[in-house]
């Protein structure tokens, strides 16, 4: 194994009341194989719990998987929560079922990337390598 730079750390979170985590697990596993350190937090986490975990794990990226339709409410709260915790250099990306019409508002709210169905793991990986903070 050649010397590598410090791996990018990614928290994969399932905010709110949404019991479907297959997509999140596939992404977590896929990003591991792309060389990321992935912290998976499990189902039904509150925004505060996600922010607190992101701070303790000192992650570079918070990825929220959301299929419940609550994205417009919850995702901006994650961005604000991180900012209030002094972690505004952590980028927030989202995946799941997010209608096209809702995207501009989320981007406006500070969501860096939105990945819908059909996105490949290498696409997500190269986006994160390009946008996550440098160490």
């Amino acid at each position: 194994m050649a010397e590598r730079a410090t791996p990018i750390r990614v928290l994969i979170a399932k905010p709110g009341l949404d019991g479907h985590d297959r997509g999140a697990k596939v992404l977590a596993r896929g990003l591991r194989d792309e060389g990321f350190e992935v912290i998976y937090t499990g189902l039904r986490r509150t925004v505060d719990a996600i922010v607190s975990a992101a701070v303790e794990e000192d992650v570079d990226v918070v990825g929220c998987s959301i299929l419940s339709g609550a994205h417009a409410t919850l995702l901006p709260k994650v961005v604000v929560g991180l900012r209030d915790a002094g972690a505004s250099d952590v980028i927030v990306v989202a995946g799941g079922i997010i209608p096209e019409a809702d995207r501009p508002a989320l981007e406006e709210a500070g969501i860096s990337g939105i990945f819908g169905p059909g996105t490949t793991i290498p696409e997500v990986a190269s986006f994160l390598r390009a946008h996550a903070r440098r160490r």
Binding site: L31, D33, E57
Partner: peptide
């Protein structure tokens, strides 16, 4: 463990640990 192949890792212990965002007397790190 980190993967010997990719250098990545899947850190899943927080799944079993409740988060206590308001409690300064707890700290968890993977």
């Amino acid at each position: 463990p980190s993967s010997h192949e990719s250098g990545g890792a899947l850190l899943g212990d927080r799944v079993r640990i409740d988060e206590h965002p308001d409690d300064e007397g707890r700290f968890t790190r993977s």
